[in-house]
Design a protein around this nucleic acid. Structure first.
Lengths: 185, 185
DNA sequence: AGAAATATAGACTATTCAGTCAATTTAGAT
DNA sequence: ATCTAAATTGACTGAATAGTCTATATTTCT
């Protein structure tokens, strides 16, 4: 693994544990087993490190989600697939999840950062379809995407606390019904 | 206003603007027009200041909500009243809202802090009723409360961005239907 | 009034931390 | 083989900041 990757991996872990305000750059470098200087060589400021991490995580969720969708699915199936992909992915990557929660509620996060995500774009298209077809309640599509996202987050937190339910797909589909009922007409 | 109150008021404002990591205690004291020493007299650590603020805000939301509920309401009406109270209150107190979002996604926040809130207790009771009566989907009541809370947050963010909708009660009741549909059977 | 307790001031400190820099090593190109 | 550019080191710095401490003022109690 390149030192750059090593730094990102370590930062992800430490940031998830102690938050990015609670984690000195020096510690990231030390834990990654590289010098302080090289961290600032790859990431000129801490803010750039943090934002790069976020970008990277979102890209990985996006790529994973892409492998899950399939042709010929109904709208509900597509939304379910994306919903489940996001839930599963976050369950399997708790560090990324923790970090993302913090980031999205930090001053670094704004609408521009959000819209830039291919992941958001993908969801947006589906939601717009659903609204046009009169299947979904008539609201601003980006708002509906945010509703879904916030329900995914709450759901993941819930499943993280109840590990026994983690493999229960019938339960998960009941959880999905909450999200679906919220947005459908 | 006592210096203690003055400090809390100032902290609320500054924390909302720049986050509590981005706001030095010295600045809080300075902006409040009091000495540094007195801040630490009332709040021995910054953490205590932050937690006190949170407690205070939650108490005020709770008190406001209490004035809104009324006897003889159906379950749906009660839930709506609480939902609307929370939405309105957050809209009218953007500083408190900003601060709360940050706090609830910070290391300071945990389940103990959450359960201690009278506000959560009040919601919990209603939700338990709904589940017992078979009106709501059958899930852990605390989880359902969190679902509602997260929907309130997303809704408030949405309304904050679209000020024109702020007075539109018909629109708000459509927003409530999302939350209601999510939890009802 | 006088003692005791509490409130207030503000200078000071010890530490922490993001970021710099000059020196050294490694890799790549010709 | 030599030159050049990029990677890497780690000691260092300057600013920021939570919390301390001593001195003074104000209130409260008897």
């Amino acid at each position: 693994m390149s030192k750059r990757e090593l730094l990102m991996k370590t930062a992800r872990k430490l940031f998830a544990e102690s938050g990015f305000y609670g984690t000195p750059t020096a510690l990231v470098a030390k834990e990654a087993g590289v010098s302080n200087g090289i961290l600032f060589h790859y990431f000129p400021t801490k803010e750039i490190l943090v934002k790069s991490l976020y970008q990277d995580i979102k890209d990985r969720i996006f790529n994973y989600s892409m492998t899950q969708i399939y042709n010929g699915a109904t709208l509900k199936e597509s939304i379910y697939t994306l919903w489940l992909a996001s839930v599963e992915w976050n369950l399997e990557h708790p560090e990324d999840f923790e970090f993302m929660l913090q980031f999205e509620n930090s001053p670094y996060y704004d609408e521009e950062v959000e819209r830039a995500q291919r992941y958001v774009q993908m969801n947006l298209e589906l939601i717009e379809q659903g609204i046009d077809q009169g299947i979904f309640k008539h609201f601003n599509p980006l708002f509906v995407v945010r509703i879904l996202t916030s329900l995914v987050e709450t759901t993941v937190k819930h499943l993280n606390k109840n590990q026994t339910l983690n493999e229960d797909f019938e339960y998960k589909s009941r959880l999905f019904e909450m999200a679906w009922d919220a947005i459908k007409k």
